[in-house]
Amino acid sequence: MNIFRFAGDMTHLISIVVLLLKIYATKSCSGISLKTQELYVIVFLARYLDLFTDFISVYNTVMKLVFIGSSLAIVWCMRMHRAVKRTYDKELDTFRHYFLVLGSFVLALLLHEKFTFQEIFWAFSIYLEAVAILPQLVMLQRSGNVDNLTGQYVFFLGAYRAFYILNWIYRFFTEPHFSRWIACLSGLVQTAFYADFFYYYFISWKNNAKLQLPA
């Protein structure tokens, strides 16, 4: 474990806490893409298949349970909670995310570390996570004005993988046979998707103005 990876995990955790805070405090999920949240449930379930077979550390197991539990809780809230589901902007959340699932799975069948069930699903989860934010970013562009908590949620979510890229660079130089090219390349693509969001987020922060994404 290095400081970059720990910072990345904490930033990821913060993004989830901010989203839960928004939903529970405001009893609203306006501006949040249910499709992106559903993709994250698939990402975590596909990635943590080794939850009960490979024990790495207490921290690793606890964080996996937190990520799986929180992503399921968010989807449950947006689909089932009476007050919250009424605020879901269904007509703005129209990205056909099934293609993202299909594309990622096909890519995982072609590009993986080992042709085993667990490795295919691990690569699938890595590719899917890279594109999972797309429905949310498209929805933000459509909804124009972004409320603070939603903006902070997306910001931390984008920042966490940027920390992971620093972690991979650090491990590349400190560990002899460290190679994570699947996660690294996918992480670069994932962080690149946030580039324009980060730009507009920085502008809004600099001008102390509301976050406006060009339609």
């Binding site: 990876r5 995990d9 990821h12 990635r47 080794d50 490979d54 790495i56 550390s57 690793n60 964080m63 996996k64 990520f67 570390e113 691990w122 992971y164 972690n167 560990e175 046979h177 460290f178 190679s179 994570r180 996660a183």
Partner: peptide
């Protein structure tokens, strides 16, 4: 402990 190149990351 962490096996080399196992998936020790989240």
């Amino acid at each position: 402990q962490e096996k080399p190149n196992s998936h020790d990351e989240l």
